[in-house]
Design a protein around this nucleic acid. Structure first.
Lengths: 126, 126
DNA sequence: TCATATGGTTACCTCATGGATACCAAGCCG
DNA sequence: CGGCTTGGTATCCATGAGGTAACCATATGA
């Protein structure tokens, strides 16, 4: 059995949608996508775009996204070296889902924050 | 359109969209939503729907979602006690974004898995 | 009296992850 | 020679997420 197309078992930890969700939910992934959405950027550009990310963690994030084919890493063998990261076509299609989340958040953020305050108030004197 | 609400600073760790993404990317949140999408369920029902989740972690997940106003927790003071969880209206609106992710995953899962295999092959002999 | 059922809580442990810091390689240039 | 650049690694450590197992409160009913 080589391919078992759709019909995901969403209850399984193997389900691709879980994989995607966890990628998107990663602390730095959305910021990398944001930094790259307008075109290729160099490592240190992305790093300063984002701010607060250590090189190790940024490398980890970029490698994971490269591995999944969501961005490309191009080394220009110059001196000093230049490395550019760029969203692939597949990676770019994830910008849509990101927008959906952003829209949802924009619409409901106030309710959620209010709910948190209210909940904390209620649970203090339990 | 007429209102330009907060205009989120997406680069900030405080940005609500980050908060939402991390909720959705949580290991058990999607499964809880799936379990509750057709109506209220009891604690032990959700637990066995999901499978593999320990009561502690399920409680943590449910509390976090309750705190954010995405679901309600109703205690029926019977003996033995009965507790039902149900998506709120706000919570139900998140099913849409979840579908978007699921659709994206369904469309691109094969490419991603293939990219992973290929990448692993290439990096083995570095 | 004691088991049973529900819906948890609590203490404890482990291991992966994130982060801070320091360091490196290559080559040009002064 | 030695310093400058970029794009990372190497190393260590603290944190915390998540899991295991034990326990609890309550009332019913055998």
């Amino acid at each position: 059995m080589d391919t078992k197309p759709p019909a995901f078992d969403v209850m399984s930890p193997e389900c691709p949608s879980r994989l995607i969700l966890q990628r998107m939910g990663d602390k730095w992934t959305p910021l990398v996508f944001l930094a790259l959405q307008s075109g290729p950027r160099r490592f240190s550009q992305v790093r300063s775009d984002i701010g607060g990310v250590t090189p190790k963690v940024l490398t980890q994030t970029l490698r994971a996204l490269e591995r999944d084919g969501l961005l490309t890493r191009t080394i220009y063998p110059e001196v000093p070296p230049r490395v550019e990261y760029e969203l692939t076509d597949v990676g770019a299609t994830l910008l849509g889902p990101f927008d959906v989340i952003r829209d949802w958040a924009q619409t409901h953020a106030a309710q959620i924050l209010e709910s948190r305050d209210s909940f904390d108030g209620r649970t203090e004197h339990r």
